[in-house]
Design a protein around this nucleic acid. Structure first.
Lengths: 182, 182
DNA sequence: TGCTAAACGGAGACAGTCTCCGTATTGTTC
DNA sequence: GAACAATACGGAGACTGTCTCCGTTTAGCA
């Protein structure tokens, strides 16, 4: 990659991160280009689809996912507490940007999505939590990590679109957790 | 309302019903206007916001909701069967149009939404099912009909956006049902 | 039949996506 | 350090969708 190309690439991602945070994932891409001081052509050459840009923005986010999972697993408590703690962190993780829950949950099952790899990390983290619970025989074993991700992702999506706060989300997560535990 | 106005109103709703069914709730409104043989101005005068048009389209749908609820309640079986039957019908009802689950679930908590009244009918139907289960002391009583609607709506939203079929949705509904039952 | 309030409709302003292609920059080769 | 590919740039503009304004038409009443 040529030096100027890399410069622009980085600049666009940095601007996009800010704009997405402020306006959500459906912010105008031309605006991001302008704010980054490049033409729309440049943006679209680097990131042909919106999801490609989102993927680049999420790069740093992935580290946080693993850290969070570790922290949750380190915490001692009942299986129910563990599951709920993970659910809450999961919702928080995918809700950092408006539109995130729907985007991520949707991409999770879509093999062709550019942000698929990021979702994979998220799912793997969820799997670690589930494995721990399965080892304790605390959770029903006919449910996959993908299904759990979709259940919690569904709750997060509704919360995101209806602008609910964590307090309103919590009881719904409890229902899902109780339905999952043996 | 003047005769020609009513004529156009009805024509637009009829066309919108078809177009929404074929293309989902985010179909172009100008296209609907053109197809109905009116100018965009006419469409926007009758339906200032997209949701106003959706609301009109849903008018006939409301009857189906009540019928379905009655049918589910008439069916004999365990509380779990009843709940699952209702969930499946619920998902089916709100998924007739692409984008429907998100739209309806979101509007359900939004006092200012034009389609609020339609959602009210849906929630009331869900409440009838819940009441029946509460009478049998089969379901936890710290959960409201709105929360249940959001849980199932969340599953339906994910299914809609990820284009999952009912077979894939069923196990997730089971988790929600089990979490809800005592 | 004439009048007025109501309704129409389409031109066009505005915003967002995305592409094409002439121009500019990079980095390599001699 | 000059010349030359290869690579990248950027902005004009095509396209699509939303929504409004306002001159024109029509319905319904007196």
């Amino acid at each position: 990659m040529r030096a100027d190309a890399k410069r622009n690439y980085d600049r666009i991602v940095e601007v996009a991160r800010t704009v997405f945070r402020e306006q959500g994932y459906d912010a105008s891409l031309d605006l991001i280009a302008k704010q980054a001081g490049v033409g729309p052509g440049t943006l679209y050459r680097h990131f042909p689809k919106r999801d490609d840009l989102i993927d680049a923005v999420m790069q740093s986010w992935v580290d946080g996912v693993n850290e969070t999972a570790e922290k949750v697993l380190a915490h001692q408590g009942s299986p129910r507490d563990l599951l709920l703690a993970w659910f809450e962190e999961y919702v928080r993780l995918i809700s950092v940007h408006k539109g995130g829950p729907a985007k991520i949950t949707c991409a999770m099952g879509d093999d062709g999505s550019p942000i698929r790899t990021k979702c994979e990390v998220l799912r793997a983290a969820g799997d670690r939590v589930l494995d721990r619970l399965r080892a304790e025989d605390a959770v029903r074993d006919d449910v996959t990590a993908l299904q759990v991700a979709r259940l919690v992702g569904g709750v997060a999506t509704v919360a995101d679109q209806s602008e609910l706060d964590l307090a309103a989300v919590r009881p719904m997560l409890e229902v899902v957790a109780d339905g999952l535990l043996k």
